[in-house]
Nucleic acid binder design. Structure first.
Length: 293
DNA sequence: CCGCGGGCCTGAGAGC
DNA sequence: TGCTCTCAGGCCCGCG
């Protein structure tokens, strides 16, 4: 599921349930997700107040009163659900939307706010890890990450510098979290479409000889900002797994212009093209060859 | 260092 | 209905 807009949607949904509230009890209902849980995973969580809930790229970071940080990643199929205690029929019995499978509820946080927060992840590509806040900057999972696409430091000049001299395609560069952190296949396809740039174009064309940004880079940054902000506003995109923490679907998938629209008419004003799909670095790329150059 | 392909898991959907 | 095959929003790792 989760690219930046989905993770941000989840963060905003978890905030009222978790921030300023204590983890009264935590359960890990199996021994591993993508990686085994740390031996002291549960004891380091229980009794701790969540002092803040942040996001870095596609990671959620819960600051704990102890000085630890709980790092969470949704992988491909992870989702969180917040259930109010009064909805709980009996201990361990939660209300589920029809399509959800509780067999994949792997982690449960019982919060002093009266909310229960449940992490569900069928494919288990997600993970959770506790690290000391003082060790955050040395954390290998976060270390190589590039700028936040909606942050101040990400602009055309920054994009040009990190793409200059790159031998790879623009599509592959945008998926590389070292270039910009938080985009995935959907939003890269959509941002390229909105800026009329071909996914096959060389990443290095974002910069001129002096590594200054080209107009292409400026257009692309504008499109990235626009598509991410619109997607966050829509609660993210729900193709199969993504849910908001209320269990509701996101609805940005209805605004896709190219993703998952192979064979359909290009939506760009006046363009007579048809959306095509091909495989690039092992991932599907959707684009309009007629108006993306 | 860089770029690419494989692998980790399960489930949904297509085709037979 | 049910089997098999392909594919999926991410990311780490090892190879060349």
């Amino acid at each position: 599921m989760p690219e930046l807009p989905e993770v941000e949607t989840v963060r905003r949904g978890l905030q009222p349930a978790m921030e300023g509230s204590k983890i009264v009890r935590a359960e890990a209902r199996r021994k591993d997700l993508r990686f085994p849980f740390q031996k002291d995973f549960i004891p380091r969580l229980q009794g701790q107040t969540v002092t803040g809930l942040g996001r870095r790229a596609k990671y959620l970071l819960a600051d704990l009163g102890s000085g630890d940080v709980l790092l969470m990643h949704l992988g491909m199929s992870g989702s969180f659900r917040v259930v109010q205690d009064e909805e709980t029929k009996a201990p361990g019995q939660f209300h589920y939307p029809r399509s959800e499978n509780r067999a994949h509820d792997h982690v449960v946080f019982h919060m002093s706010s009266g909310s229960t927060v449940i992490f569900n992840d069928p494919r288990r590509f997600g993970y959770m890890k506790i690290i000391a806040r003082t060790a955050l900057e040395d954390e290998p999972l976060l270390k190589g990450l590039g700028p936040e696409p909606l942050g101040n430091e990400f602009d055309a000049a920054m994009l040009a510098r990190s793409c200059a001299g790159r031998k790879t395609s623009l599509k592959a560069a945008l998926l590389d979290q070292r270039v910009v952190a938080g985009l995935g296949n959907i939003y890269v396809c959509e941002a390229l479409f909105r800026s009329h740039l071909s996914p096959k174009r060389l990443a290095s064309t974002m910069a001129d000889k002096k590594k200054e940004p080209t107009d292409h880079a400026r257009r692309l940054v504008t499109s990235i900002h626009a598509v991410l902000n619109q997607a966050i506003k829509a609660g993210g995109s729900s193709l199969r797994d993504h849910r908001q923490t209320t269990g509701e679907l996101g609805y940005f998938q209805h605004s896709f212009q190219v993703y998952d629209r192979e064979g359909e008419q290009c939506q760009s004003g006046g363009c007579s093209g048809i959306v095509k799909r091909f495989t690039q670095n092992g991932r599907s790329t959707f684009w309009c060859p007629h108006c993306q150059k």
